[in-house]
Amino acid sequence: MSGSLGRAAAALLRWGRGASGGGLRGPGVRAVGSGGGSGSAEHLDALVKKDKVVVFLKGTPEQPQCGFSNAVVQILRLHGVSNYAAYNVLDDPQLRQGIKDYSNWPTIPQVYLNGEFVGGCDILLQMHQNGDLVEELKKLGIRSALVDETKDQDSK
C-alpha cells in the first residue's frame, strides 16, 4: 500500500496551494464556460447528462477557489478520472443559483455521475473512503486508478 501513501503525500504537498500547477489537470478535463440561459432546468438537465462525470465547482480544476471544490478535484485525480466536465459557478451567477435549484442542494461543489446527482464534497469523500466511488465509476466504464494500484501491489 506504499503506493497510496506516495500519492497521498503528493496530494498533501499540493493541498492549500490551489492546485496551481497545470500538471494536475488531466488532458481530458474541460473547464467549461457557460452561455446564456445557463440557470434553466432544461439547460442544466442537458448539461449534467452530456458527460459521464460532471462537477460544478467554485473555480476551475487547475485553480479551485474553495477547499471543498479542491477536495472534489483531488479525489477525482486520485482515481485517475481525467475526462470530466467542470463548470465554474463563480463565472456565472445564474448557473450558481440554477444548479442549486436543479439539484435541490444548497451548496457547491456538486457532483453528477451519469446525469445523476451524487452529492457534494462530504459524500464524494465518503464514497471514496468506503469504496463506492470505485464501483460507481466502474458502472460508467471508468476504471479507477486505485484499482490498478491495488492490483499491482497484490501481485508483488
Binding site: 497521498a8 498533501l12 477536495a71 469523500l125 473512503q129
Partner: peptide, 19 residues
C-alpha cells in the same frame, strides 16, 4: 480503502493548519 483513510488524514491535517 487505505488511500481513503489517508485522504481523511489529509483533511484533518489541512484543517488544523487552516483553523
Amino acid at each position: 480503502m487505505l488511500s481513503g483513510q489517508l485522504v481523511g488524514r489529509l483533511f484533518s491535517m489541512a484543517g488544523r493548519v487552516c483553523l
